[in-house]
Simulated scan of single mutants.
Amino acid sequence: MANQISLRIVRKIADVARERWDALARVATPFVKWDWLDSLERSGCVDEATGWLPHHLVAEKGSDLVGACPMYLKLHSMGEFVFDYEWAEAAHRSGIQYYPKLLVGVPFTPVTGHRFLTAAGEDRAALIQLMGQALAKIATDNKVSSVHVNFCLADEREALSAVGFLPRNGIQYHWQNRAFDSFDDYLASFRSERRNKIKRERRAVAERGITIHAYEGAELTREHLRTMFRLYKVHVDRLYYGRQYLTAEFFDELHKRFADHLCVMLASRQGKFIAGTFNVRDRRALYGRYWGCFEEHPFLHFNVCYYSAIEHSIQLGLERFEAGAGGSFKQLRGLEPEHTTSMHYIVDGKFRRAVERFLDQEREMIRRKREMQLAQSQLKSHREEP
């Protein structure tokens, strides 16, 4: 295969025709679609000034595009949600320049999905290995410390492991649709104490005259998305560690060409929007991304971010709702811990061995943590009586 495939780096997604890229992303999440990636670039969210330099890898067989991966030359580790700050510090102490590094993934998006896009009919595992080997060589030849593939699929983990990448596990909290017919049906899946607490949390918001509505499709306007941007910015500005990754122009771009994949939950009180979440969806899942509020009310966050999203997912018949990174409190709302995977290629041999030892220990810790959390699940087991 290697003799038939040519590989090259493109410095902007617009250098690849939209139709050609999206033909590879036919079954992938919306986050690796051409319009999403191009919107990030056009709006200034990813560029040299932000420390995200597009270096997308494409694989061609003659005139056919048979493989690709969204990739960035990174000047820092912000906005990745797979935290390697300690690796950077350890590298510095060892006299190794950690930045720049290469990252295969979607900026600011901790959502598992295809990181290596491959054409139908091609040997996917062989293509992933070929591109993985090419990335390792690019890093070695250009004195780049490492290559990181974040939130990748199981088959990508297997293929990359065979060419020297190291696996790292994490935990996220996902809601799974157990063929629920309604929100009440979902509530019935909880143990009684937690079920009653959720009912009280929902009632407390309703008693304050707050309503929550999902805006999507033709109902979603540019003004809705501009409101969501303001909510996002207010939330980021409140956090001492907050960083604004997205621009108002990005939200405008998405409304123009990505609205079919968007779902904005907005909470209203006395005729004014007071809170909201920005979500992305496809035919199988809803992905929660950004939250913000102009007013603070008890349980508002849980209602807008989780309960309304789950209720909407049930109405649409979606398989799951992914609530993003962090937050073990999500388990109290019926989202259960799931493993995530990233893969890492470290060029320096001595440093690689140190990272490998760390990852061996961390994976075991993550495994035990997930087992402990599953044992503390608020959901009734299948063996329990209603």
Rank of each mutant, 00 (worst) to 15 (best):
R257P: 04
H114N: 08
D141A: 12
A354C: 10
F329S: 12
A68Y: 02
W87P: 13
E216Y: 11
S308D: 06
Y85R: 10
P167R: 09
G62E: 01
P337S: 03
E80P: 09
E249S: 13
D123L: 07
D181K: 10
D155S: 01
L117Y: 05
L220S: 11
T211Y: 10
E296V: 14
I274W: 01
L266T: 06
K233Q: 15
M1E: 12
V280E: 00
H148R: 06
G62Q: 02
F31Q: 00
S342E: 05
T221H: 01
V304S: 01
A375H: 11
K330M: 07
A375T: 02
F165W: 08
E156R: 03
G292N: 00
W175H: 09
S182Y: 02
F31K: 02
G327L: 15
A267W: 01
S308K: 11
I171W: 02
I346D: 01
L103Q: 12
A188K: 10
I346M: 03
I366H: 03
S39C: 08
R168C: 04
K101E: 09
L254R: 01
A68N: 07
D348R: 13
S39L: 02
Y345P: 03
K380Q: 10
S146H: 07
C69Y: 05
L7A: 11
I198W: 08
R357H: 14
A325E: 03
W291M: 00
E322V: 05
I13N: 06
I212V: 13
Y232V: 14
G217N: 06
P298E: 14
V82K: 06
G349D: 14
A136S: 09
R168N: 02
G317C: 09
H224K: 11
T340K: 00
G271V: 09
A14S: 15
L379N: 00
I128P: 15
T221N: 00
S39P: 10
H297M: 09
R383N: 13
F116Q: 04
D185C: 06
A139M: 03
I5T: 11
Q270Y: 07
L300K: 04
S313G: 15
P386C: 05
P110T: 04
D184E: 14
S94Q: 13
L225F: 04
W36T: 00
E295F: 11
A139N: 08
M372V: 15
A204N: 12
R157D: 11
T118S: 11
K233R: 15
R284K: 13
Q376A: 14
M365Q: 15
A375Y: 09
R200L: 10
M1D: 11
G105F: 04
